[in-house]
Simulated assay, not measured.
Amino acid sequence: MAQTLEAAEGAGRTRSGPPAPPDPPRRRRIRPAPYLLIAPALALLAAVLLWPIVQMVWNSLHSYTTRHLLPNGPDPEWNGFEHYTRLLTDPEFWVILRNTVIVCVLMVVITMVFGTLVGILLHRLPRWFGGVVAVGMMLAWATPAISASLVFRWLFLPERGLVNVVLDRLPDALVGSGWANYNWFLEPLSLFTVLITVIVWQSFPFIAVSVLAGLKSIPGELYEAARVDGAGFVRSFTSITFPMLRPLFALLLILQIVWDLRVFTQLYILANSFQNKSVYLLSYYIYQQGFSASPPNYGMGSAIAVVMTVLILAVTVYYLRIMIRQGETR
């Protein structure tokens, strides 16, 4: 009995005594295996992405033309920021930059809105029919840019283009007259209209299918509760769909901005030849300065490419910061 009491008293003293010191923090052990596994991929990305960017910046700081490519030609001369100074003081550059921003905003907005509406429509269709429509749309998305541009150029050709023929046969009170010989590819407004049509036609299927996949992850009970409360389509979208899919919309928006800022093939095919600088975009201005000018100026073309890259990075970083602040990258 005495031993039992002494053990109980000892246990009580132990429980009521000062707390035991905390265990020393364990040093986090760095395991090199994961880093070694991703090292080849990182090296490949550095070679494919980082080195061209470094080369582009280097070219933009040098006088670099075709004579420097000759076997016995001189080395490119360092000229500092001369290309950037000439570029930023050139009124034509600001006109081209303005056109690029306006056309890109229109393409992105129309593509996002139209693709989202089509994605919602596919979600409400029967599964088998929605699948057939989605496959048909993805064929448009998978069409090569050259093929799509040629098809739309044929559609809008003067005299024999389908669009001109249809518009010419409509009543003059609706669309006016003289559409048979109208050339869509001479003036900036008409050319950019066709360009935006081509880009939206090729881009909206990706947005629609992505939104459809996101809608499949939203519980249907939320929409049923919204309908019981009397919420319509707009209220359901603003209160349920958009908040639930906000990270997806942000990612799609960033991708679409990056893709549309770099549009080149469609514009090159539609315009056929660039005699009017009023229809230039930054992507073609790079090509014109770096390859089509006489003589080609690789340094100036690289400087325009650097400005375009900075513009794309600025937009991307801005939206990524918003996503991180809102905790949507987890």
Rank of each mutant, 00 (worst) to 15 (best):
residue 58 W to K: 09
residue 82 E to D: 09
residue 88 L to A: 09
residue 73 G to C: 06
residue 88 L to G: 06
residue 79 N to C: 10
residue 79 N to R: 14
residue 65 T to N: 06
residue 90 D to C: 12
residue 85 T to K: 15
residue 84 Y to N: 12
residue 71 P to V: 09
residue 71 P to E: 01
residue 67 R to A: 09
residue 84 Y to G: 11
residue 81 F to E: 01
residue 88 L to H: 08
residue 87 L to D: 01
residue 91 P to Y: 07
residue 57 V to K: 04
residue 73 G to A: 07
residue 85 T to M: 13
residue 53 I to Y: 00
residue 58 W to T: 09
residue 67 R to M: 11
residue 82 E to G: 11
residue 88 L to E: 04
residue 81 F to L: 15
residue 71 P to H: 03
residue 58 W to Q: 11
residue 86 R to L: 08
residue 63 S to Q: 13
residue 55 Q to L: 11
residue 92 E to Q: 14
residue 66 T to H: 03
residue 79 N to V: 15
residue 83 H to I: 14
residue 52 P to A: 06
residue 56 M to K: 07
residue 80 G to D: 04
residue 92 E to D: 11
residue 54 V to Q: 04
residue 65 T to Q: 10
residue 61 L to E: 01
residue 91 P to I: 14
residue 55 Q to E: 03
residue 60 S to C: 01
residue 71 P to W: 00
residue 78 W to M: 13
residue 84 Y to F: 15
residue 56 M to V: 08
residue 89 T to R: 10
residue 88 L to P: 07
residue 57 V to L: 14
residue 61 L to Q: 06
residue 57 V to Y: 02
residue 68 H to R: 09
residue 71 P to N: 04
residue 57 V to M: 06
residue 59 N to K: 15
residue 71 P to S: 07
residue 84 Y to S: 10
residue 93 F to D: 05
residue 89 T to K: 07
residue 52 P to H: 03
residue 78 W to D: 04
residue 55 Q to R: 13
residue 75 D to W: 11
residue 92 E to L: 15
residue 51 W to Y: 07
residue 72 N to A: 13
residue 83 H to R: 12
residue 81 F to I: 15
residue 72 N to M: 12
residue 88 L to I: 15
residue 86 R to I: 08
residue 70 L to K: 12
residue 75 D to N: 06
residue 63 S to M: 10
residue 66 T to S: 09
residue 64 Y to T: 04
residue 73 G to I: 10
residue 93 F to R: 09
residue 86 R to W: 04
residue 87 L to N: 05
residue 83 H to T: 13
residue 66 T to Y: 02
residue 57 V to W: 01
residue 53 I to K: 00
residue 62 H to Y: 02
residue 65 T to P: 00
residue 61 L to M: 14
residue 90 D to R: 10
residue 62 H to V: 08
residue 56 M to Y: 00
residue 67 R to E: 08
residue 64 Y to P: 01
residue 75 D to R: 14
residue 64 Y to A: 02
residue 60 S to M: 02
residue 55 Q to Y: 01
residue 76 P to K: 09
residue 81 F to V: 15
residue 67 R to Y: 06
residue 63 S to W: 08
residue 51 W to E: 00
residue 76 P to C: 06
residue 53 I to W: 02
residue 89 T to C: 02
